[in-house]
Amino acid sequence: MKNPPAKPSQLITKEFARILNSNYNSKKASLTAKSNQEEKEDANAIWYSLEELENYIHYIKTEGTKDGYTIDGIRFYFGEYPEDEKHGEKAGLTTLFLVPTGKKVQKNTTAKVQAFALVDIETSSDVESLSPMNYGNIGRPPSLIY
């Protein structure tokens, strides 16, 4: 292979990505009353360098092809870090993680004439065989205004 991609350092497991997204959906999606605890200022923006994004794109295209997918995009999911010491100052705060999307390559031996009559109606979906990417830089404090 000419230029194999380096495995991005921000990869997380699919299971952890689901935890992040579930936490966000259950806690941040609806407004809740403030608790008596001291509130930490949450992230309202996440930043990735171009180098990190280009490396991830190169990685998912290459690994996706190996897994039999045509990678066509990246879906961004909101998540929330679990409230435990393992995540330090990020515990309970918002994050954003990236998941590659694509279509499984269909190996079809149908004649070319018949192929013109076929319409590809398969939609792009999350490619679960590839690791999501996390750990961008958060915009706090102070909050960023767009």
Rank of each mutant, 00 (worst) to 15 (best):
P4R: 02
D72V: 13
L130A: 03
N3H: 09
G68C: 07
I60C: 00
I46Y: 03
F116K: 08
Q114R: 12
F76Q: 10
F116W: 03
T109C: 07
L118Y: 09
M133T: 02
I57C: 06
T62E: 10
T110F: 07
A115T: 12
R140H: 08
P82Y: 01
P5F: 00
E122M: 05
N36G: 11
D84N: 15
G88Q: 11
S30V: 14
T101A: 01
L50S: 11
I57N: 05
N36F: 08
E54S: 14
A111F: 09
N108R: 12
D72W: 03
N3D: 15
D72Y: 06
I19W: 03
N25S: 08
P142R: 07
V127W: 02
S22R: 14
V99K: 11
T62H: 10
I138W: 05
T13P: 00
T95Q: 04
N55T: 12
P141H: 08
A29G: 04
K107A: 06
T101N: 06
Y24C: 10
T13Q: 04
F97V: 12
E83P: 05
T62L: 08
K107T: 11
P4T: 03
G79S: 02
A33K: 12
P141W: 06
D67R: 09
S129H: 01
E80D: 02
K34A: 14
A29R: 14
V105E: 10
G64S: 08
Y59V: 01
N137Y: 10
D120C: 05
T123Q: 13
H87T: 07
S26W: 06
I121H: 08
N36T: 12
E122H: 11
L31S: 12
G79T: 00
Y81K: 03
A115N: 11
L144N: 09
V105N: 12
S129V: 03
Q10G: 15
T95M: 09
S9N: 13
T13H: 02
L98M: 15
I46P: 00
N25W: 02
F78S: 06
T70G: 05
L144A: 10
K27I: 14
E80Q: 15
Q106C: 07
K86M: 09
T70C: 07
T32S: 11
E39M: 11
P8V: 00
S22F: 12
I57G: 03
A45S: 13
K61P: 00
G68H: 08
I12Y: 03
A33M: 10
E15N: 10
I74R: 01
D72G: 14
N55G: 15
V127F: 03
N25P: 01
S22K: 15
K2I: 12
G102I: 04
S143G: 11
V127E: 00
A33P: 05
T94G: 01
R18Y: 05
S124I: 13
S49G: 13
K66S: 07
K90L: 15
K27N: 15
E41H: 04
N23E: 02
E52I: 10
R75P: 02
D120K: 09
K107V: 13
F97T: 08
Q106I: 15
D84G: 04
K107I: 14
P100I: 09
I19T: 14
L11V: 01
S49E: 05
S131H: 03
Q37S: 09
A43S: 12
L50R: 07
K40G: 03
P142C: 03
N108F: 04
D67L: 04
A43R: 04
D72K: 14
